[in-house]
Amino acid sequence: MSHPILEVQQLNKSFGGVIATDNVDMRVTQGEIHALIGPNGAGKTTLISQLSGLLTPDSGEIIFQGKTITGLPAYEFCRAGLARSFQITSVFQEMSLLDNVAMAVQARSGHSFKFWKNAKKEKLLREPALQYLEQVGLAERCNWLASEVSHGERRQLEIAMALATEPQMLLLDEPMAGMGREESAQLISTLNGLKKDKTLLLVEHDMDAVFALADTITVLVYGRVVASGEPDSIRNNEQVRQAYLGEDDN
């Protein structure tokens, strides 16, 4: 068995008495697509936010590639190679798609204490940015403003931006939320294409997508991990069916 790229140990987080993350242990193996599922309010986004440094856990450890990164600021998580996309789309609405991705390229290419040269004409930033847009199928729209494209395209843009930071691992928070069938299918194929060199942790409601993509599934209920394993074992897990899948089937 290959070693874990991300290991979460006994993570806890509560907000004023409400426990959002309850002693979570989790291992994500290098190169897999790991899905995190659970009913609404299970604390998935809270967990993702801790895994991307946006929230600091109350206790527990987050170990990424053998390095403990718990408590570091968000930008250090990203620099360590752990990039995320947001559930509520968070892109630069006032900028073009290309500018959005170029910003992410710029972020990983050294410091930005450069005051003179026109960054919007730097091939070093624009060309890779265009490639990432191509990878998610947005190259044609590169000059549109982020506020002008469709919701689904903005989700794609999110992923392109995350990719542009050249992460080893991507955290995707409900990338398919609010997408039509066609757009979802397109995104699934994009994610499958990433599989060969990235590890993915995916929060998703769309069960078809989850079972189509995931190598491993972790089920979160009320902030606690109730099951973790291969899709088949999860499908047949009684506890999971009760807590979660059962509701969905009816």
Binding site: L54, A74, Y75, V91, T165
Partner: peptide, 13 residues
């Protein structure tokens, strides 16, 4: 425009 996003792409604003 979006400081949280800048953090998520690895920039120490």
């Amino acid at each position: 425009f979006n400081e949280e996003r800048m953090g998520a792409i690895g920039v120490n604003c």
